[in-house]
């Protein structure tokens, strides 16, 4: 009994963390389980097990075109925001210049503004300028709110670099450009990859800003939200679960490959 109590108090924090993970994953598990539900139009009550929805994920009307739009918006805005944000991060992380604190403030403000205000202000501007909301305006909006997150992520990576590595490259007669290309950039790349992943997941999952800026263009979150009123087809659960499985597999594979390469180098 005493040993049990001691084990318990020693591992209390681990048990707590385990419970927190259960809390995080219960809805994910629910979404996954109900993707096998042999349901009709609504997917609220368990009716029996079927693979049918997994074999026909596009079976619900409009779901796959909405998903396609989400991917298009996600990839485009990830690419643009990662490039723009990484450039800013390098300027902030590597140079002294006038207007630094203003720049920092301009990066911070979009993150400190609720999404509904961002969406409402963009829509107001598009209306004022007589600009029709479409796929393009949605991409513009997504790039805007992703930039700050990219800057913050890449900047943290730049700040954590050991400056001695670059000094060593310079000592070995590499010029500034060679140092950047052969030393600095490869070291910062994992940060850029993490930023891109973050930008994509923020964009892909965004509903509020998209609802204000995409006009009649449907995206996957918009599809789910509209469908929520009259019952969500189980195909939405299939797509959500599949995205989850793909993303986790890709990230863990990347991790394993990265570890292998690291152990080869050392």
């Amino acid at each position: 009994m005493k040993r049990l109590t001691r084990w318990f108090s020693k591992n209390l924090i681990r048990i707590y963390a385990g419970l927190a993970f259960i809390y995080l994953f219960i809805p994910v598990l629910y979404t996954f389980i109900y993707s096998f539900n042999d349901s009709g139009k609504t997917n609220l009550i368990w009716k029996g097990f079927t693979f049918e929805k997994w074999s026909n994920p596009c079976g619900a009307p409009d779901i796959c075109s909405a998903l396609g739009n989400s991917f298009l918006i996600g990839f485009t805005s990830t690419f643009v925001s990662t490039v723009l944000g990484t450039l800013i991060a390098f300027a902030l992380g590597r140079y002294k210049f006038r207007g630094r604190s203003t720049t920092n403030l301009l990066i911070f403000l979009p993150m400190a503004t609720p999404e509904i205000v961002l969406g409402a202000s963009l829509l107001t501007m598009f209306i004022n300028f007589g600009f029709n909301t479409s796929l393009l305006t949605a991409i513009i909006a997504h790039v805007m709110f992703c930039i700050s997150f990219v800057v913050v992520t890449v900047k943290a990576r730049i700040a954590s670099l050991d400056p001695r590595l670059e000094q060593a490259a310079m000592d070995l007669y590499a010029n500034e450009w060679q140092t950047f290309r052969r030393v600095t950039f490869p070291l910062v790349l994992p940060g850029v990859a993490a930023a891109a992943l973050l930008a994509f997941s923020l964009s892909f999952d965004d509903f509020i800003i998209t609802n204000f800026t995409a006009g009649t263009v449907n995206t996957f979150p918009k599809f789910v939200y509209v469908a929520a009123g009259r019952g969500i087809p189980a195909q939405a659960n299939v797509i959500g679960s599949a995205m989850f499985i793909i993303a986790v597999t890709v990230v863990i594979l990347g991790q394993v490959l990265g570890n292998k390469r690291k152990s080869k180098v050392s």
Binding site: P27, T31, G240, M243, F244, I246, I252, Q255
Partner: peptide
Amino acid sequence: KNVLLVLVIAPFFVSFLLRTIAWKQI
């Protein structure tokens, strides 16, 4: 450590709307 960190953000990949609706069911 790294696997657990990935798990913290992993629920993001299931649309947050789907997860919120799952809460409604739970």
